[in-house]
Nucleic acid binder design. Structure first.
Lengths: 200, 200
DNA sequence: CATCGAATGTGGCCACTGTCAACATCGGGC
DNA sequence: GCCCGATGTTGACAGTGGCCACATTCGATG
């Protein structure tokens, strides 16, 4: 039954690590605990990861993919709704992007933390799993649709990202962590208003 | 010379801890290393701090004070400049606030990290050393001076803070850490433009 | 000034972690 | 069928945060 060789250890370690990351954040990803839960001796992980940081990087990569997926879902939902014109549709997609980002961070603080605290490994993310790439496309589309002025396009990714990322971190483990949900959501909408107006 | 009683241990520990925090961030603040550098046995720290987290909180408090001071300095500088009217002056102060925040984060990444990663101890910051309070006042003044519309005042602290905080964290240890300084500064100015226009 | 209790610092200990080196076991290609 | 590389295991080490019992010193009280 339990053969000497696990057969699928690397994947199991990553999955277990993800569980720990979700439950307890970066510090919860303890190599020995991961190994224990995977039913394997401590040290076995070293056959698949150079060190703890390498495992964290893999978990971070997964977190980024999840974040990307959550954003894509919200974008698609916004896209499927009725809109009077393409400009409005593009604006809705941009809003959805930001909302999804914050919602993900709040719903999965541990993963979110790991995603941004771990040093990414040498080869980054695929273009189609990188949240930053997604935002870039949404903004490009918004320019075409006339929701974002071409003059204001340069640097817009960073600005949008900064606003939303800061909002998320302040509310995840920062000084705003104790803010009520309704207030958080209301303020977020106001911020998204600002962004939309500022870029138009 | 080296008497049994240090005489000033608590303060020494905090100072040493600050050095470590500045040099290596939160993980660099190792109780035993702090004690070592303070020329005292490990464990002595427990007479002054409940645990490592308590020392980190104290360091975080210091970081917040430094951040506050840096912001205040920039604000004063902006205030001392010539301005055509009070509206412009208030806008300049708001910009200075944001710039100082980012500059501090980039200049003191370790302290900045500790300030926002450590759990603040029970009694928070004095009103006059809390960066958030400072921002609030700057915004209030800006409303009076007509640089910020009263309609847009609610939630403005959080939005300004989020934008600037996100910008800072993305550039300190996030995916934008490798961005060139000129680009960072240029983008920051654009973001400050957005904020100023968005709140007017 | 003497004394004694509280405050402060010490040394030893424990459980735990990441990492390394040596060894065990397995599975697939000659 | 055998052997070598890949994969897991065991044992060890240094380093950490935290607790305990003990040592030293300071300061208030007599």
């Amino acid at each position: 039954m339990t053969s000497y060789h696990h057969g699928n250890l690397r994947e199991s370690l990553v999955e277990t690590g993800i569980e720990l990351a979700r439950a307890q954040g970066p510090d919860g990803v303890v190599l020995r605990e991961v190994a224990r839960r995977a039913g394997v001796s401590h040290n076995a992980a070293y056959r698949h990861f150079a060190d703890r940081e390498a495992l964290l990087s893999e978990i971070a990569r997964h977190g980024m993919r999840e974040l990307h997926a959550a954003m894509q879902r919200e974008i698609d939902t916004a896209d499927a709704e009725d809109h009077p014109d393409e400009r409005t549709r593009a604006a809705a997609r941009l809003r959805a992007t930001g909302r999804a980002y914050v919602d993900f961070a709040v719903a999965e603080p541990g993963l979110f933390d790991v995603a941004f605290s771990a040093i990414p490994d040498e080869d980054g993310l695929d273009a189609d799993t990188d949240p930053y790439d997604l935002l870039t496309h949404v903004l490009d589309d918004a320019v075409v649709a006339g929701a974002v002025s071409a003059d204001l396009r340069p640097g817009a990714e960073v600005i949008c990202w900064a606003a939303v990322h800061g909002f998320a971190t302040l509310h995840v483990h920062g000084p705003r962590a104790s803010a009520p949900v309704e207030e958080r959501n209301a303020t977020l909408e106001v911020m998204l208003d600002h962004i939309a107006r500022g870029l138009a």
